[in-house]
Amino acid sequence: MNKVRRNRMSLLWFIMPFTLLYVVFFLYPFTKGLLLSFTDWNGISKTTQYVGFQNYLELFTEDSRFLHSLFVTLIFTVLNVAISNICALVLAVAIEWGSRSFRNLLRTLFFLPYVFSLVVVGFVWRLLYTEVLPKLSEQIHWQFFNLDYIGDPAIALYSTIFMNIWYGIGYFLIIYLAGLQTIDTSVLEASQIDGATGWVQFTKIIIPLLMPSITICIFTSIAGSLKIFDAIFVLTGGGPGYSTESIALNIYYEAYGAANRFGYGMAKAVVLAGVILFISYFQLKFFKAKEVEV
């Protein structure tokens, strides 16, 4: 009994510093936000009314822009996660088995974008999309470069995704390369003797063995994509119109933009938090199961 209590006390001592900050700067504001989501608080007015579930009702029934932003975020997430991971994985395999002597150099180069701030990256690509590529197209007569990358609502979202992939591949590449290095090459050599082709090796041996790395990369990229803000904010600001407005931007504009409907924005934030927790939970379950199978 005494020991249990002492253990409990020591646990509390150890986590106290972190917990204190966690409570003050995360739990308290988050809970307050949760409560505010049931009000019509607009940030500057002095009176705030309790409106019950009205905010929640409105965002699912009347707010087509919010639903659109859900859709935008979904596309962003699916494409960003899939393409980033596939590219990084393929690149990692190519580097590891194609040119190991250049591994360090290549890794350094491909990771470089990630050390920049997304704000910087956003401006770099803005210059690229609006000034450089059109000029390039003039010179080499390649129409593809003359697309209206951030001005055409049908393309703009893909331009932001592309930029984000460019930015993030290096991070995943490092993780996949590290994962590949843990694979025992004798397994592959043995399979080669058994006559397995490259593709079979890749899908039947490498991928399963890399599952822990894949899990972590997909987990990180999904969490990152669902809360994507900086990249879009800087490159297109959600525009033209609403075409690239992610949930994060939608909430930002709802709260800080035109309407200042903080209470309503909070309701959206709560929904988003719920969606993210939900997806993360199932994803973890799914991948944990896969790993066990292997």
């Binding site: 409990r8 646990l11 986590i15 972190f18 917990t19 966690y22 003050v24 700067f25 995360f26 308290y28 504001p29 988050f30 307050k32 936000g33 505010l36 940030g43 969490a223 669902l226 809360k227 803000f229 994060a248 909430i251 930002y252 709260a255 903080f262 924005g265 909070m266 934030a269 709560v270 988003l272 938090a273 993210i276 927790l277 993360s280």
Partner: peptide, 27 residues
Amino acid sequence: LSWFFYILFTFPFLIPLYSYMIPLVQL
């Protein structure tokens, strides 16, 4: 208890800043 705290502490990793930025900034 330890497990409970661990789960509790995972939330900031998942929950984005802008879902509580308004009260946070006020604080």
